[in-house]
Nucleic acid binder design. Structure first.
Lengths: 208, 208
DNA sequence: TAGATTGTTAATCGATTAACAATC
DNA sequence: TAGATTGTTAATCGATTAACAATC
């Protein structure tokens, strides 16, 4: 049980483990990696490695404490953090109103859009502000994550604004690379490109 | 120039190359991997490998034909393919009306939703049908890709329906694993989880 | 020929898997 | 003790990088 870094691939297995653990009858105190691997179709050793890194070790002949596993895995996901969105188009609004983020401790506080001149509300009663109110809002609520959901032409400027206002990480839905200081974390989602990759794999599978 | 398989990571570099190539003055006939690597901040050898696999080789002392590169790269992205969406909630509608897919030869034909009882139109005048019309629509238009944008509880059933109606690949936005025949390609996007990973990386970077 | 540029072969690195040793 | 289960060490595999050989 040495490493403390969690890789992206291992991180993405966390919800799968959690899902399964929560289906166990509540009186189940312990569970073996062997069993988990069997049910989820993972390798046994991989499960042990993951669980070791993610929530500490188990005991030979007994297995892992279900309670400790659930607790440890949830801790990786649910620490609290606030975010704001730049761009209240269709995607921006969909993200703003999505219920899916709160499970992971993510609070999306508001969206900002230069086309809005007075504050308005989304369907789920979340605020959408004029872009000009970003500095004041950020100085008050200190969001750490900025989400870019604007057309490509406005992406770089949105990124600069967010960085100026103290955001530490950017989640970018614009299909372009952003230039920024190296201590600003940037993660891009190019959704159309992801679908294009699926299409390519599909076409490949026809050829075989 | 041997391999023909393109990895996911290499595939994601394609738009970056294309973007840069298109900024070149139109009279530029050739460009060296050295130059491309310099501008994009990639490794020189990586650029040569990518370009070799993706669009064929270059000529020593001359470089790669810009025209051939653009042509080859675009071919990887733009072959035509149709898709349908199950679920016309906020995310489903955002995907349906997004202009970003057409660049990659992806036509999203329609969405289907069990809450709709007669066909209606989205903001961008794309059709949204009752779910019951899926079989007829699929037999007529033969979409090859199905996009799942429904709550978790309806995801598995949506997947089954799509498979029954001849879809070959699934793009799943529901945060759950889908069970399906092994020849159905499945690619999942768990957006909240992606944001949670960014949050985790951010917290880690504070600790250092 | 000399030099710019390409492509290949070997080394590295991280994630996964296989074989094994340790523990209760 | 025997056996179930854990954790570790070595092997494999794919992507990237470094060193080098080939070409015009």
């Amino acid at each position: 049980m040495q490493k403390t870094e969690i890789s992206n691939v291992a991180f993405r297995r966390i919800p799968v483990y959690l899902n399964f653990l929560k289906t166990l009858p509540p009186e189940t105190e312990n569970i073996s990696a062997t069993k988990i691997a069997q049910v989820l179709g993972f390798g046994e050793v991989q499960v042990r490695k993951d669980l070791g890194v993610l929530c500490g070790g188990g005991r030979p002949k007994i297995g892992y404490s279900v309670r400790a596993l659930i607790c440890g895995l949830e801790q990786m996901l649910t620490c609290d953090c606030s975010a704001v969105i730049i761009g209240a188009g269709r995607l921006g609004k969909a993200l703003l109103d999505s219920g899916g983020f709160s499970d992971y401790g993510l609070r999306i506080l508001a969206a900002f859009d230069f086309r809005v001149s007075v504050p308005v509300c989304s369907e789920q009663q979340k605020p959408i502000f004029p872009l000009s109110e970003l500095p004041l809002f950020c100085s008050r609520y200190q969001p750490k994550i900025g989400i870019i959901a604007v057309p490509e032409s406005a992406a770089q400027e949105s990124c600069d604004r967010l960085a100026e206002n103290g955001v530490k990480a950017i989640w970018n839905f614009s299909p372009c690379s952003l230039r920024a200081s190296p201590d600003l974390l940037i993660q891009s989602e190019n959704l159309p490109l992801s679908l294009a990759y699926l299409k390519l794999k599909m076409i490949r599978s026809f050829d075989n």
